[in-house]
Design a protein around this nucleic acid. Structure first.
Lengths: 201, 201
DNA sequence: TGTACATCAGTGAACGCGCGTTCACTGATGTAC
DNA sequence: TGTACATCAGTGAACGCGCGTTCACTGATGTAC
């Protein structure tokens, strides 16, 4: 006999949705199916989420926050400031490669989790003393690698190959940033962070 | 009185689907709705496409091929080899920014159009004489910029800001590639191109 | 040039399906006295 | 400790909807003689 009250239906539904997305892609799940997996009627979800969309938002918040934490931990295990950036970038890219569907969900999100990946990156770049705006260049580079691999547009065989490619990209960008003439990087931009990362010039 | 035979229903359906996607997002269209737009019954589409998925594939082929052509043209208008790369990268990123939903469709495609963006890029890098594998680093960087902007995760206000950011990214990567020690780029990889771009190491 | 006929490219009704969401309900839990 | 009752967290039936796809059909077009 199963308890009438589930206990933690909210998290259970998020888990079920995450698993379904992992198995069948971003569009391959429904509220009904997640409910069935958890062993609950479809209407039960509405005691925890106002709509299907609300559930998606909650899920991508959770996913992005976890990624941010993993990146922080990866960086903290390394001494050299440049290698810390490499380490965090590797975590970012591997995560997208290993969990492409879920990462696509997270990248498409409207959310602002506590430990946003971009924040983690910025902290490390501050340690390194890169010039203002460098965060956006590096973020673009590793994000590009991540989504090209996750979407299957680029393919690298094996985790070691991914590791190497991430290091190449990060080092090329860091080196390039260090050698570029200052005239290419005029007045410091006013960087301001809101719901989305944005910069007005 | 409208002709019973449409004349070019195939292209008309592709156009309608493209417009709907542009207006309402990748998931925001249906075969039925596209048919209505064209003024034709839902079943007519099946004389031109075996299924909805087949239509999507055809559309993303067309979209990617057009992008490749635009990139070629943009590069051909410039002399300096490095600036040619900047020009083509700008086209790539602007296209994603101006048409985010359609670009998302194309990036998610399983297709291999004639003038693939990556091919266009490779041609220009050959002119520049960059080391083997540089194409993947630059592609990652501009693709990252493109999707971050298209997905609204990064925001730059105005086309000029986008132009400048693209140039910064491309130049940083090119400079970095030129200054990196050769030990970072060991044996030339066996780069081979198939349906997806891939590299085995 | 005219006729017969095969083929092409549409129509429109119908199908079954799974979806998100609502509603009145009920059993379980927590709290006040 | 026991009882009354409000609140919480489920049920399950029902809703309307738009979807992709099929089918038998028919009007228009192109070809052979």
């Amino acid at each position: 006999v199963v308890a009438y009250h589930h206990g933690d239906l909210r998290d259970a539904l998020l888990d079920a949705a995450e698993t379904l997305i992992r198995e069948r892609g971003v569009a391959g799940w429904s509220l009904r199916e997640a409910s069935v997996r958890v062993g609950v009627s479809p209407s039960a979800a509405y005691h925890h989420f106002s709509s299907r969309d609300a559930l998606v938002d909650a899920l991508s918040d959770r996913v992005l926050a976890r990624l941010g934490e993993r990146m922080s931990r990866a960086a903290s295990r390394v001494r050299d400031p440049a290698q810390r950036v490499v380490a965090l970038a590797r975590t970012y890219v591997h995560w997208a490669v290993d969990d492409p569907a879920v990462s696509r969900l997270a990248f498409g999100a409207n959310s602002a989790p506590s430990a946003h990946p971009h924040d983690v990156l910025s902290v490390e770049l501050a340690r390194l003393g890169t010039r203002p705006g460098a965060d956006f260049v590096i973020w673009a580079a590793i994000h590009g690698l991540a989504v090209l691999l996750a979407d299957g547009l680029m393919r690298l065989d094996g985790g070691r190959a991914v590791d190497r490619e991430v290091e190449r990209v990060v080092r090329a960008v860091l080196t390039g940033l260090a050698h570029e003439g200052d005239d290419e990087w005029p007045v410091p931009w006013s960087v301001h962070t809101e719901r989305v990362r944005s910069r007005r010039v």
